[in-house]
Write a protein that binds this DNA or RNA. Structure first.
Lengths: 406, 406
DNA sequence: CATGATTACTAAAGAATGTGGATAAAGACA
DNA sequence: TGTCTTTATCCACATTCTTTAGTAATCATG
């Protein structure tokens, strides 16, 4: 249900809008802001003054003349505030500190000590957050909050990790509350694929479309959608389960109970099994999300990237399935951009990108009306952690419509 | 790019919001409106006064007491304005007049005289519009405009029918301009599937979710999306091409150039061919979108509905494919409601609905988190025509955000 | 039947916002 | 030096929503 709006909201909205425009450019003048936002010069002037007072924006010299008075350029003060991003994956936990632009200032990655149970892990996380903030040299009062990305279904409202399939023993852990009381900072929580999507949009600026689908390759395959400029999560926060697009009817059995899901052909486990079988070996029974899995999968990807025949054949077969899934996706959603990211594509990203680009250019029904650009994530392997930090910035500074935005 | 907002817009927005709430209920009090919209009682009071003055809303008695002063109930004045809907299908042209609620006042259907070429058809359409308005008994000055739904890709901005695959000879016809100058009424134009979606949302009120997918069964299979309460058309207005979801990799060849599209198993043509083959007959080579096709297809559907074994088997096989497509759809979009509509499901709607309900309850990954409701269109066989009329009402009275809403 | 509590609605003043027109400042150009 | 263009700000004004206070209708209760 949409909710009504008021004046305060209107002011905030326009302010966020202006900030967003400044963020998307290296530098921009007031007049250009007025043109791009549709606001009057006077209004922009007032809003910019507020932003300057708040320290979020800086004046940055003057542009070379275009005939009259030279414009005062404005640029984002990326050092005005920061956010902590935390990605808890079954194998590794990654922490980052990013500035307001979404650029990584400091990064730490360590093995996830899940076996010790949630209680002790949370204690360790609180210490890790304090440590990385200290190490980054960022003034503590400029840290806006902590974003947390975890795999699997969560309850973003209550801040619980509901039943992460890859974190045994973590049933309904009140992660948000614990971290908030432990660090004194506000915490936002979402699943890793959604976080990575928001991060891509935030850090990507103009290079990332207002409508895009992000495919996140982790232990499984998830994803997220940005539609009309804002994240779309779906009614139960489960939109973007691209890993369960059916690519082969009656195909491989999936842990979701269905058959032929994309994930059963592209997850690290599937790739590992395919690679082993192709060499006539018995598929190794590695535990889901273990360090050994990551290791083995990395070897296959590197081999494929190096051109080793068997590995390449396996990855190319996977890429073919991925292409079909993206075609279905663009037929349904008509997005102009598909971004591939997550640690699961490191090494093979370009192989995937080429295959998907080819499929998207030749198969969707509307291929004549729009080109679908296929890009690799600019946030790299740490997409989820950077995205988690971006969620904090996004909730604080993104222009939002009234009502419970999806 | 989002655009800035101003005060006039804010007022209009809140007014639309209130009108929308009134529309969605049979009757509602000012206090309830305040609760539901988040506006203050005073603001609601002011907005309601404007709506009463404009004649869009009526006071309708008082509610039985809840302890204090009895509330003055408000209800939509459905007779305050009307819209004309026009659906130009290859086989038939349907005209409707609907009231502000989206209810059909008058309806006319006739054979589409496409063979005579666009020029003469448009002249006939102008006359038909005048006729139906007169016949409906609606005061001419209360008709807000004309909505036109046509199959295939169009350019809603320029008002052209670009290259409708089923209307030979109609290349870039300036339909909007011609109709506007011929009738003196504003014209909005969109494809039939999108129109049907908007109509379903408008006429459905509370019974239709703010997030839903509408599958439109006509000559082909199209559809539309409502996400976050507003229609989502995609970047090139081609979202919702559900007919081209791949359901069988390497399957039947589709006119889109791809293989195994849903449409190749569920379109009237596909069903006709399947039914003929099953009876050992040669598939009849009927022209696409011809009256003979509609006739033959109707026979198969009626036979299936009557329980005739061969026809039933064909429809059940089709329903199975449909189920798979909807599972993919819900995995991607996490919508709580899927609506089936269009003349293509008349007779077999319940068969399809049962199959899809079953699939949606057992196969999507998030099936435990949300139930997907599967419903049949409330606008019936005339979904596209009613939807076309609703587009007029929607563009006039739906709350809209600033900027180019998708 | 008077009193007070509850619910529904409205009037008037106040605060926040964007708009439009005028003004000021800085530089380009003849 | 003077005029024009571009950029940015100042001030009066209109519009919106909110706050505060007040009116109106109904019910419960003694």
């Amino acid at each position: 249900m949409l909710t009504g709006t008021n004046l305060l909201w209107l002011g905030d909205f326009n302010q966020s809008l202006v900030l967003n425009e400044i963020r998307s450019k290296e530098s921009i003048s007031r007049v250009e802001l007025a043109e791009r936002t549709g606001l009057t010069a006077q209004t922009v002037s007032n809003i910019v003054r507020r932003l300057l007072d708040a320290g979020l924006v800086l004046e940055a010299g003057r542009r070379s003349s275009r005939g009259g008075k030279r414009a005062t350029m404005l640029r984002l003060n990326a050092e005005s505030c920061y956010a902590v991003g935390l990605h808890i994956d079954p194998a590794r936990t990654t922490l980052v500190v990013t500035d307001l632009r979404g650029r990584v200032v400091t990064r730490v990655s360590r093995r996830t000590p899940a076996a010790r149970g949630p209680g002790r892990v949370i204690g360790a996380l609180v210490r890790a957050v304090h440590q990385i903030v200290e190490r980054s040299g960022v003034p503590a009062d400029r840290v806006l909050g902590i974003g947390v990305a975890t795999p699997g279904p969560i309850d973003p409202g209550g801040g619980l990790v509901v039943e992460p399939p890859n974190l045994p023993g973590w049933h309904s852990v009140p992660l948000r509350e614990s971290l908030e009381s432990g660090t004194g900072l506000p915490v936002v929580l979402d699943n890793d694929a959604t976080a990575a999507t928001i991060g891509e949009r935030w850090a990507g600026g103009e290079a990332r479309s207002a409508d895009m689908a992000f495919l996140y390759f982790g232990t499984g395959i998830g994803g997220g959608l940005v539609l009309g400029g804002r994240p779309y999560r779906g009614i139960s926060k489960n939109a973007g389960e691209f890993g369960h697009i059916t690519v082969v009817v009656g195909g491989r059995e999936c842990r979701c109970g269905n058959r032929g899901c994309l994930e059963t052909y592209l997850s690290p486990h599937a790739i590992i099994d395919d690679a082993a079988r192709r060499r006539g070996e018995e598929p190794p029974r590695l535990p889901r999300g273990s360090a050994a899995t990551v290791e083995y999968y990395g070897r296959v990807c590197r081999a494929a990237a190096a051109g080793e025949e068997d590995a390449l054949a396996v990855i190319e077969a996977a890429a073919d399935h991925l292409g079909h899934a993206v075609v279905t996706l663009t037929n349904i959603l008509d997005v102009p951009m598909v971004v591939l990211g997550g640690w699961g594509i490191s090494g093979i990203g370009d192989l995937y990108r080429r295959a998907v680009t080819e499929a998207a250019a030749t198969q969707p029904i509307a291929r004549a009306m729009r080109k679908t650009r296929v890009e690799l994530s600019i946030t790299g392997d740490d997409a989820a952690a950077v995205g988690a930090a971006s969620m904090v910035l996004h909730t604080t500074y993104a222009p939002r419509f009234g009502g419970p935005a999806g």
